[in-house]
């Protein structure tokens, strides 16, 4: 699987993502600066976590208007897999690639801890290696992860199976509606999630739970 990671001013989980992708795919991802105009020809483009532009205006708002986004939208329209993690999820909603918005955490504090995730839809390219209903561990680290969408949008994404991951067993850290932790677009090739699967992929991390997401993508690309 060929991969690329977009780097913005203020990205800080890009190297974690390079490491996880290299570990699982066996090849180094290409790093693409946000000011570039075209993405390389790859199977997966990742928008990593961090604080692009210092979260000025709204988290992800300014990064979502970067030059590279035009080609990201075009690639997403052509069916290329796109994964946004944490600030990457915020950027994808701000860019209109995913529905809804990520608001300030209900408890108003930055949360940095481990949560439990339930894979509620394993019929996606991001989740095929999980079993349906599988509960797994994943770290979160964010201030604006409180997923919001209007009732009509929420009903639509629930009915379409676009909700892929939910916080399980009362571990919702941010007040997000319907315990939503990760969603796809309607076509199912763009996924955004607040938790960091790239931070639980080797023994030194204390677990391997996050690997299944990347292995799902690698299987799909093979």
């Amino acid at each position: 699987m060929k991969t690329a990671v977009i780097v913005f001013p203020g990205s800080n989980r890009d190297h974690d993502m390079f490491h996880a992708l290299e570990l699982i795919t066996g090849s180094r991802p290409q790093s693409v600066w946000h000011a570039e105009s075209t993405l390389p020809d790859v199977d997966l483009v990742v928008v990593p976590g961090g604080f692009s532009y210092g979260d000025y205006l709204r988290s992800g708002a300014i990064a979502a208007r970067s030059p590279i986004l035009k080609d990201l939208v075009a690639k997403a329209d052509n069916g290329v897999s796109v994964l946004g993690v944490c600030n990457g999820f915020q950027i994808l909603t701000e860019a209109g690639l995913l529905p809804g918005a990520l608001m300030r955490n209900a408890g108003l504090t930055f949360v940095c801890k481990e949560v439990l995730m339930e894979t509620v839809n394993n019929a996606t390219r991001f989740s095929s290696k999980f079993t349906r209903g599988q509960v797994w561990r994943c770290p979160v680290a964010h201030h604006d992860g409180n997923y919001f969408a209007d009732d009509e949008t929420l009903d639509r994404i629930e009915d379409n199976g676009q909700v892929v991951f939910r916080y399980a067993d009362g571990t919702n850290p941010n007040g997000s509606l319907n315990d939503i932790a990760g969603i796809t677009n309607e076509k199912g090739n763009v996924l955004g999630m607040m938790p960091h699967p790239e931070n639980l992929v080797e023994a030194l991390h204390g677990g391997l739970d996050g690997r299944l997401l990347f292995e799902s993508l690698a299987t799909q690309a093979a």
Binding site: L57, R58, A61, R65, M103, F148
Partner: peptide, 9 residues
């Protein structure tokens, strides 16, 4: 529409 407001919210 393009930047100052997120019209979703």
């Amino acid at each position: 529409e393009k930047l100052l407001a997120n019209t979703v919210i």
